[in-house]
Simulated scan of single mutants.
Amino acid sequence: MPISSKMLERFIVKFSAEETWIGIGESLLQILIVFILSRIVIVLGKKIISKFFLMREKSPLRVSERRDATLLRLLKNVLTYTVNFITIIMILEAVHIEVKALLAGAGIIGLAIGFGAQSLVKDVIMGFFIIFEDQFSVGDQIKIKDYEGEVVEIGLRTTKIKSSIGQLFVIPNGSILEVTNFSILNSVTVVDLTLPYDGDIERAERTISHMLESLPAKYEDIVKTPQVLGIQSLNPSDVVLRITAETIPTRNYYIGRVLRKELKNCIDENYLKATVQEEA
């Protein structure tokens, strides 16, 4: 009898046996139970983590909200990866695959390719430093090289930044050497006001300074009363006054637009001859 015929006969005999189908049914049932339990663990685990951080927000010993938001997302990702890894191992055991031998082989292969995965290791190490040194957090406005925007996610390997026009930049953590964080310290907005040579500069400074004193009460983003620094430059046909305003982090662009509007209204109301220039 040909070898192929013998194999086919053994195959038919094996799958005709009741024990085979019972074993398959048990394996499928185990896989289903493991999968359902893993989903339940992930959902409950994420709720517990969220509840823990919610309690921290109400605590008088609360730490940085930026750091909490970053750690919250990171812990949820770690929980998902860990549970999914354990689920895969249990499913392999349910179908009678030798997990120990598989892990040993994977360890040898991983060691072999590890020398070529140094950039991955570097990304993970830098991810730890970024998170635990609190260099920046989810929600911060940052700039990395030519990429600027809001941090939407920090992982162990990559950082995701969303630009003001909706672009999503995915940056490997290992390539992050310098970071500019706009969300930690107060910002400053600068507006230049152009006056003609025949204008009354002293009167203009007094009028504008009086108007600026009312702005902190109108706009909560302004930290303190904006200042008229004085003459910034002398041009052939005009004089440039510089006005600055300190704002809460990342609100300098908004306050810059507000300040230009208020200056324009002040000029019109007091019949001053001047032109408001773009922010320097």
Rank of each mutant, 00 (worst) to 15 (best):
L263V: 06
M55S: 12
M211N: 07
F182G: 05
H96Q: 08
I176C: 02
E18M: 14
A204S: 14
M211A: 06
R62W: 00
A112G: 14
G174E: 03
I109T: 12
V223A: 03
I22W: 05
I154D: 05
D268P: 03
Y254E: 15
T159W: 00
K261L: 09
L54A: 12
E213C: 02
A112T: 15
L193V: 15
N265T: 10
F85A: 11
I36W: 10
M126I: 09
G256Y: 01
L29R: 15
I12N: 09
I91K: 10
V121R: 13
I131F: 02
E269P: 08
S214D: 12
I49S: 05
L195D: 02
A104H: 08
E148Y: 03
G116L: 14
E9H: 12
I22H: 11
P226I: 00
E18D: 11
I222E: 04
F85V: 05
H210S: 10
L92M: 12
E178P: 11
D123N: 15
S163H: 06
S233D: 15
S119W: 03
F35G: 05
T158S: 11
P236M: 01
A217P: 05
E65G: 08
L215P: 01
K273T: 06
G139C: 00
L74S: 07
R66P: 01
A245V: 03
F136D: 00
L28S: 11
